[in-house]
């Protein structure tokens, strides 16, 4: 793994490796226990635990899933374990000083589509990176997206679609944003296995994100540009 990881005390490294393995095996209680130990015994921050334990573990799960070694049942069990650990970290994330609030994200899987593993992963990673995330769940229609964007004064809209039959609905939502005069307020990120860069461009999204890591990078980078633009505007 990384140099930073290699620099950690051996005992902590082992804890993280075990957490990754437990995550891989979908052992919820063990993953939660590891998370608590990392916090209490080693004084690790939520960001460190996410990076070295949970996200690193999910990366392995993701890779083996992609390679056809793991299948949906295993991925779901791993995602459940990760979610349980996130519940431990969540209260700490919001008031954790090391993570400055980056912005507000409204995220959901579009109408007609119930795939949410990838979208939830993106939501968790964004939370981990300091965003406030409003997760609308699955089968979300344009009205619900728009209402949530208004209600939470969102900076970013994230849409997920895993079906070729539901991805065109993203265009419908973007058109509605334009109609409602909200398109300039929000950065639109889209993702999901069948999407492509060309598709995202075609429907007028700001960025297509291949995976959760790219999603976090893009969210941060585009927020930076947005904040900068806001600053310039307020000076003018």
């Amino acid at each position: 793994m990384s140099d930073e990881f290699d620099a950690l005390p051996a005992e902590l490294q082992e804890l993280y490796l075990n957490m990754q393995d437990d995550l891989y095996d979908g052992l919820k209680d063990e993953v939660v226990e590891g998370t608590v130990r990392a916090l209490e015994e080693f004084g690790q921050t939520p960001a460190q635990i996410l990076q070295y334990g949970l996200v690193a573990g999910m990366d392995i799960v993701g890779a083996d899933f992609r390679d056809g070694i793991l299948f949906v049942p295993e991925v779901l069990m791993a995602a459940k374990a990760m979610k349980a650990a996130m519940e431990v970290l969540r209260p700490l994330l919001t008031d954790y000083k090391g993570v400055e609030k980056q912005g507000t994200v409204v995220i959901g899987t579009v109408k007609g589509d119930i795939h949410d593993i990838g979208k939830n992963l993106v939501a968790m990673m964004l939370e981990g990176a300091g965003f406030e995330v409003i997760n609308l769940g699955i089968n979300v229609d344009a009205d619900a997206f728009i209402q949530a964007i208004r209600e939470h004064d969102a900076d970013i809209l994230g849409m997920s679609a895993l079906l070729t039959t539901t991805m065109p609905y993203m265009r419908t939502v973007i058109n509605r944003l334009i109609e409602e005069g909200l398109r300039d307020q929000v950065i639109v990120l889209v993702g999901g296995a069948p999407l492509t860069e060309a598709f995202a461009e075609d429907i007028g999204a700001d960025r297509y994100c291949r995976d959760a890591a790219v999603a976090v990078e893009a969210a941060k980078a585009l927020m930076q540009i947005k904040k900068e633009a806001r600053r310039v505007k307020s000076m003018a």
């Binding site: 082992e14 490796l17 075990n18 393995d21 083996d64």
Partner: peptide, 19 residues
Amino acid sequence: AKGATAERRARRAAQRSGR
């Protein structure tokens, strides 16, 4: 081939018994 999984499980088993 179940390579990656087998390798990972072996490492885990070694760690467990070591601990």
